[in-house]
Design a protein around this nucleic acid. Structure first.
Length: 694
DNA sequence: CGTTACTCT
DNA sequence: TTAAAGAGTAACG
């Protein structure tokens, strides 16, 4: 499966460029992986995207180095302690094992491509991809033979397969067929969990019992019924939990199935040799880290390294890893889930023309607002997402006191956020609204569906169990299609609701852990808790006043009217004596900051502890103290300001240098590099939080 | 609360 | 020429 590097002395630069496409998937059997790698590398080399990938990879390498160092520093006593912690957790997790349910994961085969072929049979047998020259959503099996894969840009795919046919995406079509499949699913489990347009989880325990037939038989029947109804093939996995079922559905894809019996030995055998990369929730980065730090790659090895995992990772991450090692995950009954955010983003050719950027922003605001209206949503938190010309991603958010949904409101606040970033060269702008009004959150639009919808959703008693994780991505956004759909048959109403259920496995928290277990284990971890500030504080945020004056006034004044006046507001004074805040609470010769006067005194008790929150930060940590003060400051401002509606001050407080277009190196990434360079005596012993997942 | 990173389709 | 869009969670400041 894995690309095996044959030892040789010839330089092979392409082998070091690891893309996601190296992840061996179904239909990639006869592919010359090295050839594909080489082409991808050649096409990528030198691009902005590529450079960004390299930066990210370098960053991960550092993270790995850091963790290895910490692992090496663990004393024998530490290890024996963490071994106990791990053993205990393993026992606790094991006690939650539930083999009483039978879960089925259905996964449509090359869904988008298959649908497109249905509507245009002339595509049959030819290599085809759904997507564009920029990005491919999915490819049919003919195309996969050439190494063409989902998430691969089209121009690279065309290089791999010159005859590749491109078909644009058409979500309405996919939603229609998705609905057909879901009708079938409904017959087997009216509470099925849709994970996306083309995937779902069904608890078939009941059907199996009622009809006294096996999971395998149900799977066969369901698959053949799906085929009858849609003309599409799918694959299925049957297992005692969702995590395993998902893995199983991939085994005999396409048009196949795999059953893992509800037997502990069977599960352990299955899991033991399984590469953990196959597990949902473990992606490229986690794989690299676990491989790089511990040299492991199978689920079984996770258990063997239990002590290290507990020592180096957060409680919830360690728990997840251990449960993967045990083959646990996702046996609970689905609950109603609500959408938590809604967003819209667009990529365009990079520009630094502020007027153009504001125009794009207005377009996005418009689209987002429209989507929100369709679902009757309104929210209090607005997040602006930016991708610079060099592919660096940033987000900027405000939380307001009012719920907003109109494009005017969205645009007004979004403009303020954007303004603070100018000048900047961008290739993507996105907006997201979250923090919904509880009353009208989530329930999909159509009032005629309301009775059924509310009925089903109200079955959301057990809100506990933070058992989720998996995104379900694309399909929620398509809910409105369903309700709008002319054809919408009555049954669909039910299904519409189910689309709200989600989330395949429980990753970070095992929902079925009972409280006692949780508590005891938490205690085990809590003991190690130490001052995280000192271990995690990052160094050196340059306090350069970003001098980029907005010489570039937006022509679209009206968009930014609210903050118009604050062009007079000064930013952090250039001098910025780092200790300024330590001496006295921000006097600032700046009236605009009047609110700061209301901030309680921040000083360092015994020159060590923060008077506001008790964080311990030795006086030598100058930069960290500055940052810490700014943290309280921002917190303060934010509180006072979220009421006024004008939030333009906050972004202005950032001390980090912004970067623009090309030079995005500095900040973020360096944060951690710096951190790793820092001398942190205690943390190597006690830290439970690692630099992991920075 | 705000920001970033990771993951999935 | 050309590397998406939408969503969720964890972790940290």
């Amino acid at each position: 499966m894995e690309e095996s590097e044959s030892a040789s002395d010839k330089p092979r630069p392409w082998q070091s460029y690891h893309t996601v496409y190296t992840n061996a998937k179904a239909g990639m059997d006869g592919v010359d992986k090295e050839q594909v790698q080489r082409v991808v590398y050649e096409m990528s080399k030198g691009s902005k995207y590529f450079e960004n990938e390299e930066r990210k990879e370098a960053f991960i390498r550092q993270k790995i180095e850091h963790m290895r160092a910490r692992a090496a520093k663990l004393s024998a006593a530490d290890l024996s302690h963490y071994q106990k912690v791990a053993d205990k957790r393993i026992l606790e997790l094991e006690s939650t094992r539930d083999l009483s349910r039978i879960w089925l994961h259905v996964d449509m085969d090359a869904f988008y491509a298959a649908v497109e072929t249905l509507s245009n049979p002339s595509l049959k047998g030819k290599p085809m991809a759904v997507g564009s020259m920029s990005m491919i959503s999915t490819a049919n099996y003919e195309a996969r033979k050439f190494g063409v894969r989902a998430a691969m840009p089209g121009f690279i795919a065309r290089k791999l397969c010159p005859d590749l046919i491109f078909v644009p995406t058409d979500f309405k079509k996919y939603t229609y067929y998705s609905d057909l499949t879901r009708k079938v699913f409904w017959d087997y489990d009216p509470n099925f969990m849709a994970a996306s347009l083309d995937e779902a989880y069904l608890d078939i325990s009941k059907v199996c019992e009622e009809r006294s037939i096996t999971g395998a038989e149900i799977a066969e029947e369901l698959r053949s019924r799906v085929h009858e109804e849609t003309g599409l093939t799918c694959s299925a996995g049957v297992a005692p939990n969702r995590l395993l079922a998902k893995v199983c559905s991939d085994i005999n894809k396409p048009n196949g199935q795999f059953v893992l019996p509800n037997d502990r030995m069977a599960v352990m055998t299955f899991i033991s040799s399984l590469p953990f990369r196959k597990i949902g929730g473990i992606g490229k980065v986690t794989e690299n880290i676990l491989k790089g730090v511990f040299g492991i790659s199978t689920c079984e090895e996770m258990l063997q390294k239990g002590s290290f995992l507990c020592a180096l990772f957060s409680h919830s991450s360690a728990d997840f890893f251990l449960s993967v090692g045990l083959g646990l995950g996702g046996t609970d009954t689905p609950e109603a889930r609500f959408r938590k955010s809604i967003s819209s983003e667009r990529t365009f050719s990079a520009t630094e023309d502020a007027a153009l950027l504001y125009q794009k922003l207005a377009d996005i605001a418009e689209m987002l607002s429209a989507d929100m209206q369709k679902e009757g949503l309104s929210g209090r938190t607005l997040t602006l997402k930016l991708k610079t010309a060099s592919f660096e991603v940033r987000t900027r958010a405000v939380t307001l006191q009012k719920y907003i949904s109109s494009s005017d409101d969205i645009l007004k606040h979004a403009s303020n956020l954007l303004k603070a970033e100018l000048p900047i060269s961008l290739r993507l702008i996105g907006l997201r609204v979250s923090h919904f009004n509880e009353d009208k959150r989530g329930v999909p639009g159509d009032p005629t569906q309301k009775t059924l919808t509310t009925f089903l959703i109200s079955g959301d008693p057990s809100r506990r169990t933070g058992d989720d994780q998996r995104s379900l991505g694309s399909d929620l956004s398509d809910l409105h299609f369903i309700s709008e759909k002319e054809t919408a048959m009555s049954l669909d109403n039910n299904e519409t609701c189910h689309h709200e259920f989600r989330d395949p496995f429980e990753r970070k928290h095992l929902s079925d852990i009972d409280d006692k277990n949780c508590i005891s284990s938490i205690n085990a971890f809590e003991m190690e808790k130490i001052d995280e500030l000192s271990s995690n504080k990052t160094a050196a945020m340059v306090n350069t006043a970003d001098v980029k004056e907005r010489t570039t006034r937006s022509p679209k004044r009206d968009l930014s009217r609210v903050s118009e006046d604050d062009s007079s507001i000064q930013r952090e004074p250039e001098d910025s004596n780092p200790d300024r805040l330590n001496k006295e609470p921000i006097t600032s010769g700046n009236e605009e900051f009047f609110s700061l006067n209301q901030m309680e005194m921040l000083f360092w008790v015994d020159d060590y502890k923060c008077s506001l929150c008790g964080a311990e930060l030795p006086s030598s940590f100058v930069e960290e103290r500055q940052e810490h003060s700014d943290f309280h400051l921002a917190e303060r401002l934010q509180k006072e300001e979220s009421g006024t509606g004008s939030s333009s001050l906050i972004p202005r407080l950032r001390i980090v240098p912004k970067d623009y277009s090309g030079s995005q190196n500095r900040r973020k990434k360096h944060k951690s590099s710096l951190k790793q360079g820092m001398h942190l005596p205690i943390d190597s012993f006690f830290t439970k939080k690692s630099s992991w997942q920075l």
